[in-house]
Design a protein around this nucleic acid. Sequence first.
DNA 1: TGCTGGCACTCTCAACTCGTGACTGCTAAA
DNA 2: TTTAGCAGTCACGAGTTGAGAGTGCCAGCA
Lengths: 347, 347
Amino acid sequence: MRPELDKRKAFILATVVYEYVATAEPVGSNTLTQKYNLGVSSATIRNEMAELEAAGYLVQPHTSAGRVPSDAGYRTYVDQLMRPETLQTSEQRRLHDEFRAASRELDAVIEHTTRLLGQLTRNVAFMVAPHRDVQTFRHIQLIWLSERTGLAIVVTSLGLAVQKTFDHAAGIEADELTSLSNRLNAAFGGKQMRDISTADVARIVSEAGLSAELVAALAGALGDAVGTDELPAVISSGAQHLLDQPEFQDLRKLRSILRIIEEQKALYDLVADSVGSSEPNIKIGHELGSDDITECSVVTVPYHFGDEMVGVLAVLGPRRMPYARLLAVASGTAASLNRHLADTDPR
Amino acid sequence: MRPELDKRKAFILATVVYEYVATAEPVGSNTLTQKYNLGVSSATIRNEMAELEAAGYLVQPHTSAGRVPSDAGYRTYVDQLMRPETLQTSEQRRLHDEFRAASRELDAVIEHTTRLLGQLTRNVAFMVAPHRDVQTFRHIQLIWLSERTGLAIVVTSLGLAVQKTFDHAAGIEADELTSLSNRLNAAFGGKQMRDISTADVARIVSEAGLSAELVAALAGALGDAVGTDELPAVISSGAQHLLDQPEFQDLRKLRSILRIIEEQKALYDLVADSVGSSEPNIKIGHELGSDDITECSVVTVPYHFGDEMVGVLAVLGPRRMPYARLLAVASGTAASLNRHLADTDPR
DNA sequence: TGCTGGCACTCTCAACTCGTGACTGCTAAA
DNA sequence: TTTAGCAGTCACGAGTTGAGAGTGCCAGCA
C-alpha cells in the first residue's frame, strides 16, 4: 500500500524513531541536521519529512512541533530499518547466573523470570506460563480430604501440578481413590496431555464400579484437571515503571493500562496469537487490538521446552520503546530460561 | 499523653474527619457551621479547632486553608468517635451469593475474594493466604518426574498443595517413591502441620534404606514442603483505584506505593502483626512503619478455618478512607469467606 | 467566663497575558 | 534538486492579578 522508501527517507525515518525514543520529544528538522550527519540542509529535511508525513509514517502533534512516528512509521522501522542488537557477553553471563541461582520449582522460575525481565527492561514484563497441551502426563493422585471432598492432582512433565476439588457426598474410601489413581496412571502414563480426552477419563472412572453420582463428580473434576482448555496463567511485574514514562503522566491513560495489567485474561489476549509461534513478535499501538492501549507496544518472545514452544515472555511499554534493545533482552532472557528448563528436566 | 477531649471537641474532630473523608478538601470553620448543626458560631469553632491543632489532632496544610486530621486525629476517631457500620442485608446477601458461585479450589477462592474486596471497597485489597501452620496434614506424594528429578507434593486440610522438586541423580524407582510416600503418610496422617518437624521427616526418609545423597536431597525437599517457615502467599487487586484518589495525583507517591503492592513481602510486613490475631485492626499512616506509605492506612480483618485464624483480608487506601465502611465491607467479606471455607470442608 | 461579629491578613488557585523559542511551509534563487 | 530566508503558527513557561476561603485576634455582650 505505501510506496517503498528511498534511501534518504528511510534514514530520516529511522533517525526520527531513534531520536524520539531517546528524548521523548517530537523531532524537528533542525535537531536532525545538527545531531546527525545528513549532508543536506534542514530545508531539505523539512521537505522529506513533509512527504513522510503525507505517506503516513510521521505525525505532527501540533503545527509548530517536530514529528513523531506513527504506528506505520514504527512498523516500518521495526520490519526494515532497525539494526538488531545482541546482548554483550557480560550481560549474557549475568542472565545465566541469575538462572543458575534460581529455584527449581516451575512457579518460582516463572515468577523470577518475569521479575527479572521487568527489572532489566525497566518496563512491564509479563509471561504466559507453559501451556499444558504440549506437556507430558506424569502422574495423577486422588486424595481424600474430608468426609465430603477429595482432591485430584495432575502433574505434568514440567512439574506443573493442577488441583481440582471434587465432592463425594456418597462416601468413598481412601484406598478406592488410590486404586483409581493407579488405573488412571497406568492408562495415561507418558502420554501427551493433548492426547488425553475427557472422554477417556470418564470411561476409566466409570469402569471403577462406583456410584453414578460419584462417577459424574470425579469425571467432571478430572476432566477439568486433565483438560487443557483453561488459559495458562499470566503473571506480570514492573507496573511501576510505567510511571517513569512521560506519556503516562496522564492518569487516565495510566488507569486503563493498569486495569489491563491486573487482568490475566486481558494480558493473555494481547499476545494470544503469538503463543504457539516460534518467532519473536512485535505489536505496535493499534495492532494490539485494544482501544485502551493504543499508546503501547508489546514485544513477545517464545520460550520452549523440548522442541515445543510452551509459552511466551513479553514486554509491555510505551510505543516509544527501544525495540531492538528490548527484543535483545527478552530474547536473551528466553534463551536462559530455555536452558534452565532443559537443565532442570531433560526428557 | 494527650488530654481527654470534651464533648464538643470530640464532635468537631469527628465531623472534620467525616467531612474531609467525603470531600478530600481541608475543612474550615465556616463549612462546619453551615453543613452541621453545631449551635455555636464559626468563631467559636475556630478557637476549638486551634486548640485541637495545638493538641495534635488536626493539621493545617497552609495558613489560609482549613484543617485536616493528623494520624493522631484519625486514631482518636477510629478508637473512640467512629460509629461502627454494618452491611445492609441486601449487601450481605449479595456477598453470600458471590461466594456460593465461587470455585471450590482454594487458589481460586483467594483470588476471587481479593478481587471482590477490591471492587467493593474501590481501594487496593490484598489477602494473606491461609497459613500452613494451623492446617492439618492430609497427604504427601512423591512422584517420579524424569531420570534425574522427582516431585514432592504435600496436601493440607484446606486442599492447599505445596510442591518441591528434588534431585535423585543416583536413580530411584517409581515404586520406591510410592512406598516412601506411604510411610510418610502413615506417620503424619491427621497431624497438625506445625507438629511435624523437619527432623521427623529426615528420620523417616533415612529409615527407607536409600543412598546417603538421596536421603539428603529428599529430606531437604520434604523439609521445605512440610516446613512452615515460608511466608504465606499474598495477593492483591485493585491497584488502579489508587489513581482515583486526589492524594495520589502526585506520581512520586504513587510509584512508591505501587512498588510495595508488587512486592509480596512488603505487603505481608504491613499486616504481619495482625496475622495471628482474631480482631480486626486498623493502621494509620506512620503506624504502618514504612516511610513510603505514610499517606496510607490499612484495614485488616482476620478470617478463620475451624477455630484457628488462618489469614487476613486487608484494604489499603489513603489515610482519608471511610474507616467504618471499609471495616464493615471487609468484615462482611471475611464472614462470607469463613462460611464458604467451612462449607467447603467441614473437619 | 465563654461566645460572637467583625475585620485585617494570609495564602492558594485559576485565569489571563505575553514574550520566547521551536517548528513549519513556502518562495525564489543557485 | 537543493538551499537560504522569511513569515506564520503554536505550545509553553513566567509573571500578574483577582477571587475566594480561611485564619487569628479583638472588643463587646450575655
